[in-house]
Every structure is written in structure tokens, then in C-alpha cells.
Design a binder for these strands. Structure first.
Lengths: 342, 342
DNA sequence: ATGAAAGCGCTAACAA
DNA sequence: TTGTTAGCGCTTTCAT
């Protein structure tokens, strides 16, 4: 009933402060507020000041969803990882997120829990948000999800693996080469009876297959493999060594699909007073920082986890901003870090 | 130049498939497509079928940003945590994310790296996305950020701490009580000369202050405290014990602000062949799974990290969907898990 | 350097 | 049950 009742808004209105409110107070057009905030250098000093004043007076926080919808730039990067708990991926995510933050991007995190079913659903949600880029842990096999990803046109970086047919960009290393290299390394050191402790996951599978195959090629006895399924725990690593010793007491070298499992094997060896590395060698995978200064320090296949995250951020941001990424297929390699356990 | 050239779209158009395209193919109105997707039970079977067909034919993925803008519901929850690397928060985040996913929500993750400056910037970005809820690690002190959060009207849950003045909801425990309880526990066990190893963070500060104060209250000699700053590593834990022994060789019990630091202390003790727990007791904080089955198994102040995440998800989702949360202030407590190291 | 108009893709509100 | 209309809050396009 006020005289200056604004035009009757027939429907909604969420109540929050909008560009329009700020514009009215600053005595400018909404578009000027937008420019003052996003491209301050294209606006005169005087107007800039007035807008800033109005912004702080009202506590205006721009609605980024509206901005994204309008500009088709979301400043959002989505990452899909299997798990964060004591996993080698945490460092990748941390470096990815830090780099994104510095460039003004946000990270959306989806955890697939190593479940293919979940990955599919996750991807729908991810694409629906129209992120400017997608970070994938692992490579995406031919599937419905892959088709949707391809169709979306969103820049994608697959990581932690290599393939001749990436969706788009790729930052990884060869799991096959690792298995082979570890077998050769053990052989070199004079170990003769190998075992493997692994979780159920496709990449571990390839490392272990190559390890087993190489041992066979070199004329060794069959490798005793324990698959711990989805129980990626230290305890399960301990049990695995117990199983191995029961069934193949002459095993003298164990390759584990993760540092955590290797820590378990090491722990069980200690419990049984088995001399490491004299009687038993243990090799981990990943290179989480903690293992380096334990006693005994764990030898491992070291992956530069942070580098993967940092590179991925760089590539994704470049593409999001329309730049061309020169060499978007990178093999970051690996290195066997010899420590006390081998 | 085609005869059926559509109405000349004067401006933009991102090229992707939209509701309109699907609607045209299915021979219905756009809103019907929207309903068929979001509320399938309000649409006749026949139309539902036609819409689904059109969706799969076109590969339509709804633009959730547009939907959010229109409905003021983003189905996004933002979480701000200090760090993910070997941190006790990973389990909280994992359980939070899992619960959110099951309810159709996405997680946006921001890492503050324990930097107040970063937290402020992060919060701006977070509020700008208009998430349906915000998960905070720790409590937010009076500050500009707190004001903005309050003003935003977004449901907030603060965690991992207690305060009489939460912003909104709260799921935590008393750091003061922990420090006190650990001192009492050590005392009970007959230890007499305490030390502490801690990182720079406000919550560790309160645990340690209470620990120190209680020891004093009980007539013990001053507690020797080593502050490792931001170096939350196993190695730094080792160094810390070395420092302690150099300056206070009669120390017989060490309380650490994290399990990782405690693992370092334990490792150094082993390197020096100091009998644990006879000559030296070590207590960690957090309860990361790995410590339970190591040798020696680390005693720790166990926090139910997953429960915090799960509860937070429950509360945040309830509030996002307009429901009332009955008791939004929860003390999840803690428990001292006695293992080999004490 | 600034503004007016249009529209990003979706759904709430109202109508039939 | 289905459709029409309007508008969420912003920025692009075009004009001045």
C-alpha cells in the first residue's frame, strides 16, 4: 500500500539481494554492477566506487549459478575418485583443489567407492552441473557413461593410467610396466619365490598380471596371489601374509597393490619375527608419505601423486578458458624407491 | 535457408539439448518433460513413455544449474575442511559424501589448508553457489565470514568442536575434556612426567592447554610441549620426541595432537630402543584405522569420524528439504582406546 | 564507458 | 493430468 510499492512481482523471488537491488542503490544499470564486479577495469573509477559501496552496504553475494547459466561458464571442476580414506589419491585431490582454488575454480567431489554402478549415476549428476572440466581417476572403458561424457563436450582428463584411446586428455603411467619392473627388481635382488597381495580393482589387476607373467617368463615358480577384495586395510594385509606363509612357506618377496596392504604385511612379518628384508622382501605401491620414515621404511613404487593433480588442474583450466593444451597425453612414470624392506 | 528454419534466435544458444528439444520430439510441453523427469508419478504412463524415449534418443541431460536457479534448490552441499591428506577428516568427508549421494546431493569440497585467509575467500565462493547446506570443520569464530554465513540463511553445521554459540547446527565434542581426560588417564597409569607434541591449530591448542593445566593441577612438573607448526608429518613426530628427550629426559608420557605425530613418536622410540609403554607412553588423537593393528598398536583418543559425517548429512538434508531438525546440537563424545602404547 | 533488451534452461504458479 | 505464462539472477549482444 506504500506509494512507492514496486511493480507487483506476480510470482516468485527468493528474497536475497540481487544485482538489481545493488544497481538501484548505486544509481546505475544492473549490467554496470556486473561489469564492476567481473571486469572492474572496464568501468570508470567513480562508478566502481559507488558500486562497491552499494555491494558492501547490502552484503551482496553474486549468484554464481545464475551467472553460469547466462555465461555458460561454471568455474566448477568435477572430480570422480574411488575413495579418500588413506588412499594414494588424496594427494592428487589436494593438489588439484589447491590449484583450482588459486585460479578461482571450485571442486565438486564424487566418490565412486570402486563401484561401477555408482560411477554411472555419479556421472549423470556431474554432467548435469555443466562443470567446465571433469577429472577422472582411471580411464573410462567403452560404456554408456563414456558416450555421455564424449557427447557432453566437457573437457575431461583421465588419470592414473594410460590408454591409446583416451576420451580427451590423459595423465598417467603404465601399470603393466610397474608389475614387470617390480618382478625384475626382486629378481635382481636375488629373491626367487614371489607372492602378491592385492585388492579388487582393475588397475591393481594389471600390475599384478604383469608381475605374475614376468616371474613366469623368468622361469620362477608360480606366484602365490591373495586377493583381499574390497578390504583395503592394514589388518587384511596382515592376514594375507599369514595365508601366504601357510600355503607357500618359501615365499621370499611380496608385492602389494597398496602401501597400506604392504604395511600390514610388514607388521605381520614383525609379529612373526621374520627378518625383513633378509628372509622376506616387501614392496608397496603409491608412496604415501608416512611409510618413508617408519621402521623398517617401506620400499614402494612411487607415484608423483601431487604432480598428477597439479597438471590436471593446469590442463583443465587451460581448456576451460579456451586455450589449447599442447601435449595433453602425459606419462608421469613411476620409480621404485628402495628402502629397508627390500 | 531451409524452409523450416526456426524462429531466428537473436542471440545465444549453447547448442546442447534442452527440455524444449525433448518436448518437441515427444510432442508435449516442456513442463511435462520436466515433470516426467522429476515427478514421474504425476504424469500419465503414456506420456512418461514418450518422454523417456525422447530423452534417450537425444541423450538429454538436464541442466541442473538452470533447474536450481528456477527452483532455488541446488541439491548441492558445500564442505570446508582443512586438509584431506592422512587426516582424521577423510572419514567424515567420506561418510558425508556417501550419505549425500544416496539422497541425490552433490558435494562441493573446499580445503582451507588451516589458513584463515583462505577460509574467508572460500566462503565467498561457497555462498555464491547457493548450496542447500554448508558443512564446516570446526566452529566459526566471530568474523566477517560468520556474518555473511548468517546472512545467507543457508543451513550450516559446524563440526568437530563444541560452542555455546553455534551459527546453526553443531556436531562435535569437547577438546578441553579430552586434554583433561588424557592427563587423568596417564596419571592413573602411574606416569609422572608429561610431554605434548602438537601442530598449530586452534583445537589442538585447547586439548593441549587442558592437558597441561590438569597436570599442573595435579601437582606434576610442567609439561614439555613441542609445537611442530604446520608440519603434520611422521618425521616431525620423530624429531619431536628427540627434542623432548634432549630437554627433558625423564618424560614418561607423551600426548600427541594427531595419530600421525604419535606414530612418529612411537617410531623414534623404537629407533632408540625405548621400551613402550614401560618407559614411555604414547597417546594419539583421532583414531585413524591404520593404528589399531600396528605393532605396537597405538592408544588414541578415538573420535567417531564417520558418525559426524553421517549425522551432518542427515541434518543438512532434512533442513534442505524444509524439515525441522529436533536436536541439532550434538556432543558425540570421545573415548580413550587403550592399546599397546600406554 | 554505459545502458536496454533479450535470453541462458529450467520450474513455480496459475489455468484449463 | 497437461499446458501457458512468467520469471529465477545473471550476462551477452547490440546500441548509444
Amino acid at each position: 500500500m506504500q506509494a512507492n510499492d514496486p511493480i507487483k512481482r506476480s510470482r516468485r523471488n527468493s528474497g536475497a539481494v540481487t544485482v538489481r537491488d545493488v544497481a538501484k542503490i548505486a544509481g546505475v544499470a544492473p549490467i554496470t554492477v556486473s561489469r564492476a564486479i567481473n571486469h572492474p577495469d572496464t568501468v570508470s573509477a567513480e562508478l566502481l566506487r559507488r558500486v562497491q559501496e552499494a555491494v558492501s552496504k547490502t552484503g551482496y553475494v553474486p549468484n554464481l549459478m545464475a551467472g553460469s547459466l547466462s555465461s555458460s561458464k561454471s568455474k566448477l571442476i568435477a572430480a570422480v575418485i574411488p575413495s579418500t580414506v588413506f588412499s594414494v589419491f588424496t594427494e592428487t585431490i589436494e593438489s588439484l583443489n589447491n590449484a583450482l582454488f588459486d585460479a578461482g575454480y571450485q571442486l565438486m567431489l564424487g566418490q565412486s567407492q570402486y563401484l561401477a554402478s555408482r560411477e554411472e549415476a555419479l556421472l549423470g549428476a556431474v554432467i548435469g552441473r555443466r562443470p567446465d572440466g571433469i577429472f577422472l581417476t582411471g580411464i573410462m572403458p567403452a560404456s554408456n557413461a563414456r558416450k555421455r561424457l564424449l557427447a557432453s563436450g566437457i573437457p575431461v582428463v583421465e588419470t592414473w593410467d594410460l590408454t591409446p584411446t583416451p576420451i580427451d586428455m590423459l595423465i598417467g603411467f603404465s601399470h603393466h610396466d610397474i608389475g614387470r619392473a617390480v618382478a625384475d627388481y626382486f629378481l635382481d635382488k636375488g629373491y626367487k619365490q614371489f607372492a602378491a597381495v592385492r585388492a579388487s580393482d582393475e588397475r591393481a589387476d594389471r600390475r599384478m598380471s604383469a608381475f605374475v607373467e614376468r616371474a613366469k617368463q623368468q622361469g620362477l615358480a608360480p606366484v602365490h596371489v591373495v586377493n583381499v577384495g574390497s578390504e583395503r586395510t592394514l589388518t587384511r594385509g596382515r592376514q594375507a601374509l599369514a595365508e601366504i606363509l601357510e600355503n607357500a612357506s618359501d615365499v621370499d618377496a611380496v608385492f602389494c597393490s597398496s602401501d597400506l596392504l604392504a604395511l600390514g604385511v610388514l607388521t605381520e612379518a614383525r609379529a612373526r619375527k621374520i627378518p625383513v628384508p633378509d628372509r622376506l622382501a616387501v614392496m608397496g605401491f603409491g608412496g604415501v608419505p608416512i611409510i618413508e620414515n617408519m621402521i623398517p621404511a617401506l620400499s614402494t613404487v612411487q607415484i608423483n601423486s601431487s604432480k598428477i593433480g597439479a597438471l590436471a588442474a593446469e590442463y583443465l583450466i587451460a581448456r576451460a578458458e579456451g586455450r589449447v593444451v599442447e601435449a595433453p597425453i602425459v606419462d608421469v612414470g613411476f620409480s621404485i624407491h628402495e628402502r629397508d624392506s627390500t
